[in-house]
Amino acid sequence: MKNEAEIRAHLARWVAERSNHPRPEEISGDTAILEQRLITSLQVMDLILEIEELSGNSIDVSRLRPGVFRDIDTIYRNFFARQAE
């Protein structure tokens, strides 16, 4: 599996590719991805698939809580950090 820096860079690039304005380096750990609508509501499912592929774990969509994809810090904490421990 990729290390933390690689995962964060991968996620920033993935979001930037789907968004109109920011470059990957402009997406920091606390950039609000959904609130700023950097990705659309329909792309949330693609983000879930991307996280599943990166982490190697499946995500139970019915158990997703508000805010879990707020920004890259939160995504890393919820879906990757525990694995690394």
């Binding site: 959904l34 329909l42 949330v44 499912m45 508000p66 805010g67």
Partner: peptide, 14 residues
Amino acid sequence: GISNPRLVAQMVDP
């Protein structure tokens, strides 16, 4: 319901 991507988006981003 849950099979609609827009509902999933609202669940994670109320």
